[in-house]
């Protein structure tokens, strides 16, 4: 067991953003965090990244609390990518990805051939080699997001925390990033915790899934089991059905839209 959260609680002012959050992460596991807006997904990720001081409980890596690990040592274990990060205008893709090596080179050590090779690998696996010298401001939203992911994987951490890495991307880029996440976990044994809004993408890529509602974990387990609980409909206040798509694959959630009922009603009349 690599990363473990036990009874992690975070409060902002008087409001409880995350309540008694439990999670264990095995090497090479992909974990999806789903839940409505404001359900505590980002808070959970930030607490796991040691960026928030929990008011109760703790997150530990190999038995050591994350907020007790010095930042640079922690960055070699764990990479965290927030939602919609911003970079200086004139920074290029390659310069951004280089920052991912800070955890390894520190303030003074010069970049070794290994570091350069890792930067090249990170650019290549995100399909950015050709764009390496372009300033970030000239890129499309999808390219920029891939550049940030590239910087995070250049960190070569065993744990990768991604906060909605596919939001604001078109479906093509979404699939690319989901595939990249899967490859990282299977080919390089990276453990990934990812907050994500697309339920079907979450179910298809993850090994385990956590469903949060108002800061509380209402489900933690196999994505296939989630389909049978009926929790999706109550937590997200929607109606829909799980449709099997392939044997051994988690089913797809087909959401019912209000206007479809309306249209059907009109046709029936």
């Amino acid at each position: 067991m690599l990363l473990a959260c036990s009874k992690l609680t975070v409060t902002y002012g008087g409001r409880i953003a995350l309540k008694s959050f439990d999670l264990t992460l095995q090497p090479g596991e992909v974990r999806a965090l789903i839940g409505p807006n404001g359900s505590g997904k980002s808070t959970a990720l930030q607490a796991m990244a040691g960026l928030l001081r929990p008011s109760g409980g703790r997150a530990v890596i190999d038995g050591v609390a994350v907020d007790a690990i010095p930042r640079r040592r922690l960055a070699r274990q764990l990479a965290y990518l927030p939602q919609q990060p911003t970079a200086p205008d004139e920074m290029t893709v390659a310069q951004l990805v280089r920052q991912g090596r800070f955890a390894h080179v520190g303030l003074l050590r010069s970049y070794s051939a290994d570091d350069e090779a890792t930067i090249g690998w990170a650019l290549e696996s995100t399909g950015l080699l050709a764009l390496a010298d372009r300033p970030l401001r000239e890129l499309s939203g999808g390219e920029r997001q891939r550049a940030w992911i590239s910087a995070a994987i250049a960190q070569e951490a065993r744990i990768l925390l991604l906060d909605e890495p596919t939001s604001f991307l078109d479906i093509g880029y979404q699939v690319e990033i989901i595939d990249l996440v899967y490859r990282l976990s299977r080919e390089r044994g990276v453990s990934i915790v990812m907050a994500i809004h697309d339920l079907n993408q979450a179910m298809s890529v993850c090994d385990r899934i956590s469903l949060l509602a108002k800061g509380e974990t209402v489900f933690d387990g196999d994505p296939k089991d989630l389909a049978e609980t009926g929790l999706i409909e109550t937590v997200f206040r929607v109606r829909g059905t799980f449709v099997p798509i392939a044997p051994n694959a988690p089913p797809h959630f087909d959401v019912e839209l209000a206007h479809r009922q309306m249209r059907d009603g009109v046709l029936a009349r």
């Binding site: 930030q46 990244a49 040691g50 960026l51 010095p70 930042r71 640079r72 922690l74 960055a75 070699r76 764990l78 990479a79 965290y80 990518l81 927030p82 990060p85 911003t86 970079a87 200086p88 920074m91 920052q99 991912g100 800070f102 955890a103 910087a151 960190q155």
Partner: peptide
């Protein structure tokens, strides 16, 4: 690294 927002700089490993 200080050109980034604090959470980003910190997760890159900067105190």
């Amino acid at each position: 690294l200080l050109q980034f927002e604090a959470p980003v700089a910190r997760s890159f490993g900067l105190p």
